[in-house]
Nucleic acid binder design. Structure first.
Lengths: 144, 144
DNA sequence: GTTAAATTTATCGTGTGCGATATAATCTTA
DNA sequence: TAAGATTATATCGCACACGATAAATTTAAC
C-alpha cells in the first residue's frame, strides 16, 4: 500500500505560522507608521517600556534576537532619539540601552494599538489567548 | 482609577507568532541545509510538488508572497536547477514555473522532514492541529 | 601573574519581505 | 481601433534575520 506524502502545504504547521506572522506585521503597519517605528523596533520599545534600561544581550534574550540584528536596529532607534546607548563602567563589554524622554513619551501614543489590532484580527478572544499560550509554551522549549 | 497598560510583551499575540515563526524556521535549517534550500525556497518547492507547474502569481497567492520576493527567489531556484521558467505563449506577461526532474527528485529527500519537525517540536498533535486551523482561519480573513 | 577560554558587542555577507515604481503585454471601450 | 485602464512580472531601496567572524574585555586555570 502506497503511503500518503506529508508534504502538502495545507498539512504543514510551519507555513501558517510563517504566513500569519507576516500578515500580522502588515496589520501593524498603519499604526506603527504613525509612531515612525518598524515592527521589530516596536518590539524593542515594548520591552523598554517595561524595563526602562537593560543591556543589549538582555534585550536579545527577551526577544529571541541576536546582536547582529539588534545592533543596527538600536542604532536606528538612537538616531530617532528614542533610546540612548551607554557602555557600562563596571564591564566595558556590555552596552546599556535606555529610553530617552522622547522614547518614554511615545508609549502614550502606542496605548491604543493592541485594542485596534484585536479589532482588526476579529477572532474570539479565547482562541487568541489559547494560541498565545501554546506558542509561549513552544518558545519555552527552545530557551536554552 | 488608573487603567493597566496593554503594552506588556507577555500580553501581545503578535510577538509569540513572530518569535515562533523564526524559531520554527531555525528548526528546519539542519534538514533544509541537506537539500540546499532556504526556508522560503522550501515553501515554493512544497507548492510545486503539489502542482508541478504554475505561474508566478499563482505561487504568490498560495504563499501570500509578492513578485518582488518571488522573482529573485525563483531565479535562485532556477540557478540550482530545481525549476524552469518559461514565458507563456498565450499571454506573454505571465511566466510559468515548472519543476525540473532534479526538483522532482528532491521530493523524496524531503519526505522525512515533517515527521522530524513534529518530533523536534514535541507538542500534543491535537494542539498543533488546532493552532494550524485557527491560523488558516486568520489568514483567510485577509485573502482579498 | 600570564595566558587561554569565555563573554559581550560589532561587522560582514547572503537571503528574504515589502512598498514604490517601472515595464511590457493585454484588455476595454468609446 | 487607438487611447487609457488593467494585469503580470521585474527592479529598486530599505530593514530585518542570521551564520560566521572579529574585536575588546573579563574570567579562569595553571
Amino acid at each position: 500500500m502506497k503511503e500518503k506524502s506529508h508534504l502538502l502545504l495545507k498539512e504543514q504547521l510551519c507555513f501558517p505560522i510563517y504566513a500569519t506572522s507576516r500578515m500580522v506585521t502588515r496589520l501593524y503597519q498603519p499604526w506603527l507608521d504613525k509612531l515612525g517605528l518598524t515592527y521589530p523596533q516596536y518590539l524593542v520599545m515594548l520591552v523598554l517600556w517595561e524595563e526602562q534600561r537593560l543591556t543589549v544581550s538582555q534585550l536579545g534574550k527577551r526577544l529571541y534576537l541576536n546582536t547582529n540584528t539588534l545592533t543596527p536596529l538600536l542604532k536606528k532607534l538612537r538616531d530617532k532619539g528614542m533610546v540612548a546607548k551607554e557602555r557600562s563602567k563596571d564591564d566595558e563589554r556590555t552596552v546599556h540601552i535606555e529610553l530617552t524622554e522622547k522614547g518614554q513619551e511615545l508609549k502614550a501614543q502606542a496605548e491604543d494599538i493592541p485594542a485596534n489590532l484585536l479589532e482588526a484580527i476579529d477572532m474570539p478572544v479565547e482562541e487568541l489567548r489559547q494560541m498565545r499560550e501554546w506558542m509561549w509554551k513552544l518558545l519555552g522549549k527552545f530557551d536554552d
